[in-house]
Design a protein around this nucleic acid. Structure first.
Length: 352
DNA sequence: AATCCGTGGTC
DNA sequence: TGACCAAGGAT
């Protein structure tokens, strides 16, 4: 164990945060926490971890749960494929491994939703297997420690940092070491304004010596954020409104949502009424346009411009051929919906 | 390899 | 305020 590794372990022992998934060696709970924490801040994910552990204490509890229920519990956390993949993986753990979490890296890595990072995390934290994690924290710590400007989102960079992480790994205590590196990145070696003055390995840090801390890690720019224009149809009666389930190959897959007419702009009421959706809708003569309200919903890679067009209706036949059904605001506790729709519905029904 | 997939916080 | 990013993975 080299000097850097030793100092990291010593620092971690004193400065580690008290996080709920650090109390356990249960691979199911560690897996659950790692899936929740993918691209998610600890503060945002922690309430969800508590909810899931309470509702699904074991992998069998998760496995027998309906996917709609799992998605509802996941609502608001984003990246919903994590919930769908996790549920699917729970099925595999129960059927293929008889409910016992697999203990070898390759089996863990083959589970849906488990990539290189998560497999290494579960293997090291739950089973003390010598696999080094490489997450955003590790990229930052290693790029600065060794003053490496290879882009972390290039294949060369991924290989290079993976190899460095393996070399630095404390193979006697891989779980402890992995968490120490990530913890340093999270609370000391931060993206901006890192606290190098109290860093336990500052004397080894090449970037600090060279004055390149603020330039590392290097990342290839993403392409500019594109706009999408969603014309929502809020078809509402006294107590009911119209809902559908979103299909594959788009955002919010499997969640429930209102019917949408997506075009290259937000539509005015008269433009909207020219759409084929309304010509196919029996009973459209009972539709009464009651106004609209606009929302800008910003995702990482999209700006969603949403206009909720509000229609009163008395009766609408032939809705089901669009997959549309009627529901109530109260009944929404059993349907997972995007944050955007959640905001709209809450504002609409609280104002009303 | 490049793009897609959410939500919320930071500076 | 807009760019960046957070215990990434799938295609």
């Amino acid at each position: 164990m080299n000097s850097v590794t030793h100092k990291l372990a010593k620092w971690y022992k004193v400065h580690q945060r008290n996080l709920p998934w650090r109390d356990t060696k249960d691979p199911y709970k560690i897996w659950l926490s790692e899936i929740i924490l993918q691209q998610t801040r600890v503060e945002q994910g922690t309430p969800y971890y508590y909810k899931f552990v309470e509702q699904y204490p074991t992998v069998r509890d998760l496995e027998v749960a309906p996917i709609d229920e799992v998605l509802k519990l996941w609502q608001g956390l984003g990246y919903y494929s994590r919930a769908r993949n996790m549920h699917s993986a729970a099925l595999e753990v129960v059927k293929k491994y008889n409910g016992k979490f697999p203990k070898d890296y390759n089996s863990i890595r083959s589970l849906k939703g488990v990539g290189d990072y998560t497999a290494a995390a579960i293997a090291s934290l739950a089973f003390d297997l010598p696999h080094a994690v490489v997450d955003g924290n590790v990229y930052r710590v290693l790029s600065r420690l060794y003053n490496i400007d290879t882009p972390i989102n290039s294949s060369k960079g991924k290989n290079q940092f993976a190899q460095l992480a393996e070399e630095l790994l404390d193979k006697k205590k891989p779980g402890n070491h992995n968490q120490a590196v990530m913890e340093l990145g999270a609370i000391c070696c931060k993206p901006s304004n890192p606290t190098c003055n109290i860093c336990p390995i500052a004397e080894h840090c090449l970037a600090l010596a060279k004055g390149t801390i603020a330039n590392l890690p290097v990342k290839i720019k993403n392409k500019p954020v594109q706009n999408r224009y969603l014309n929502y149809l809020f078809l509402v009666n006294e107590e009911t409104f119209c809902l559908l389930q979103r299909g594959p190959d788009d955002i919010w897959q499997g969640l429930y949502d209102l019917p949408i007419v997506e075009r290259d702009k937000l539509l005015e009421p008269d433009e909207l009424m020219e759409e084929s959706f309304f010509k196919q809708l029996k009973g459209r003569q009972t539709l009464l346009y009651k106004g609209n309200s606009d929302y800008l919903h910003k995702l990482t890679h999209r700006n969603l411009h949403a206009r909720f067009h509000i229609f009163f209706y008395k009766s609408l036949a032939s809705l089901n051929k669009f997959g549309i059904f009627e529901t109530t605001f109260k009944n929404m506790q059993s349907h997972a919906i995007p944050r955007l729709l959640d905001k709209f519905l809450n504002e609409y029904y609280s104002i009303k």
